[in-house]
Amino acid sequence: MSYQANFRVWRGDSSGGGLEPYQVEVNEGEVVLDIVHRLQATQAPDLAVRWNCKAGKCGSCSAEVNGRPRLLCMTRMSTLPPDEPVTITPMRTFPVLRDLVTDVSFNYTKAREVPSFVPPQGLKPGEYRMAQEDVNRSQEFRKCIECFLCQNTCHVVRDHEENKPAFSGPRFLMRVAELDMHPLDAAAEEGLDRKRSAQEEHGLGMCNITKCCTEVCPEHIKITDNALIPLKERAVDRKYDPLVWLGSVIKRRK
């Protein structure tokens, strides 16, 4: 069941590069990452790629296969047309370091900008009580493996370097939603309005709910429907609700 496949792999670094052709054996059941490993072992020992778990759990092996953002370890060869060359390129939204490896530090910077969970006062460790129904939603968002494919895909920053400073991207807007929906998060008590900060600090307004992020998420998290839209609705509620608006204006004047 083995066959020879044609691959084109982007090789290069920050100063430039291009697609290199390779011919390589493919066996039954293999995923694209297997082929990259075979290339390393036989033809291109210094071909740079990130991976860890090879089981879709760590989110390291993100790249683009035939132009589609994917995990290399979860893309089976059998899902690709056998008679056409397979093109592997690095994620486009982040600067290339070498070959398939990109500089994803943008994401770590954005992660730091989201204020952390605020533990409730007066509850000691072991005293937390939460109903399963109330944690389901935040748990869905915590399935995120930080592959950054959604960040890579979102058109707000893909090819728009200038938007990066103001926009946290779907992954980290979803993190705001996750904390906002956490039943015991005490941010509000500390004077932090997570909904407003999503709008004002993390660029929620730039998202126009195209759902491209949801489409590429390997964890099948409904980023747009379950995190971004509800966050938007509530952010809007607050912003335009006259009473809340008045209250916040008064507060700010103090």
């Binding site: 670094d13 390393q40 020992p45 210094d46 071909l47 740079a48 790629v49 370091l97 070498r98 070959d99 490896v101």
Partner: peptide, 8 residues
């Protein structure tokens, strides 16, 4: 190759 991100 060289020392930059070289898996080999």
């Amino acid at each position: 190759g060289h020392r930059q991100f070289n898996p080999g």
